[in-house]
Nucleic acid binder design. Structure first.
Lengths: 207, 207
DNA sequence: AAACTACCTGTGCATTTGGTCAGGTAATAG
DNA sequence: CTATTACCTGACCAAATGCACAGGTAGTTT
């Protein structure tokens, strides 16, 4: 009861602000986003937004942090013990699900990278690079054991990333081409099916 | 000689402005870009920029148009007569080359789509949709003739788009991960090799 | 050389922006 | 009930922005 009642409003307001900011930053980029607009979307006075977050950059950092957390959390790992078939299935599935369930996260991330990754240089240099190296090693092991085709593991990782994230980042284009207003449940399943089949075949994995 | 000497300065200046604008729009988005900054990059006074292009939106439209022209021009077609193998090879090759040679074009295009395609809705609705339908039909024919695996042609097109454009849009991330400053000649060739091999295998095309 | 057109740009201005701040109210603790 | 803290916000401001415009210069045509 005494828990932390004090922070209740704080948490609620911050959530509203971050949600609003996510939309604003996606549609207008960092420089184009305005605190006033974020405040309007959140339904709060600008001064209140700046009461919780010292300045615009602060808001942006908070949004990015939230996004990276989600990335971290939602990404199925690639572990040796699973073997190539199961690992690919798990990874592709979780990436596609992420794209359909949280397209906004994928979008700001993509914008950040396209614009030069000013705010993510460090993340990419340390965390990401490490991650790719580790997973590439796992793929290489499977290749050495003759359990999958001999392809460049790093290129393979890029292919999986791009083909799965595409459904989040290019959502607008895909929907327009398919003449639809929104994704539906079955769409994600269809994409998962297509991509896993395709990639497994591309890697000559039957098992 | 009398050709059109009058327009010489005009053309030169406009080129400088559009080049500058491309950079500015990529790094700051439409709203975040400023005419002053474009002028600075182009090495011209702001008033001169606005002499050639009425206003900011005008500049942006010109940049987008230029980009779409390049897209149109640089994209190898997918034609039935080539057969699946040759067609995939040609298409993937030209898409990858575009990504490595003109990453900026791919980038503003990507930004536009991510931000909701406000300025490209019409293009996507008419031109793109048509293009995808036509090409999907060609793939379907090959499938019916048993010349490639029975996959959803539209998903296939998305996979090729995403996996090739990735090298342009996510250039920064890829370079950082590979701990490199720039792409080199051989990189494009390596990617072309990897993707064509992989996709042909994924489509069960040997021939 | 006169007339005409393309090219150029400093100055000005209304508007928008990020951010401060003083002066509050509500909630909680002692 | 009092003191302390968390929460809230209208009003303000300096800086930046998109853009109009007037008053030019350079080049071309006749």
């Amino acid at each position: 009861m005494t828990d932390k009642k004090q922070g209740k409003i704080r948490v609620k307001s911050q959530e509203k602000i971050l949600d609003a900011a996510l939309d604003e930053f996606i549609t207008h980029g960092y420089k184009g986003a305005t605190v006033q607009s974020i405040a309007d979307i959140a339904g709060l006075p600008k001064a209140n937004v700046l009461y919780y977050f010292k300045n615009k950059e602060n808001i942006y950092h908070a949004v990015l942090e939230q996004t990276l957390d989600m990335w971290d959390q939602g990404i199925g790992d690639i572990i040796y013990e699973d073997g190539p078939k199961r690992a690919i299935e798990k990874f592709v599935t979780s990436k596609v699900r992420m794209s359909f369930d949280h397209p906004k996260s994928s979008k700001i991330y993509a914008m950040e990278i396209i614009q030069g990754a000013q705010h993510l240089k460090e993340f990419a240099r340390t965390y990401l690079r490490q991650w790719v190296r580790e997973k590439a090693k796992v793929f290489q092991q499977w290749i050495n054991e003759g359990r999958m085709a001999n392809v460049d593991p790093v290129s393979l990782i890029f292919l999986i990333w791009s083909s799965t994230q595409h459904y989040a980042d290019f959502e607008t284009q895909i929907l327009t081409i398919m003449n639809r207003a929104d994704y539906e449940e079955e769409d994600a399943e269809h994409v998962i099916q297509f991509l896993t089949d395709f990639i497994l075949r591309g890697l000559a994995i039957d098992e």
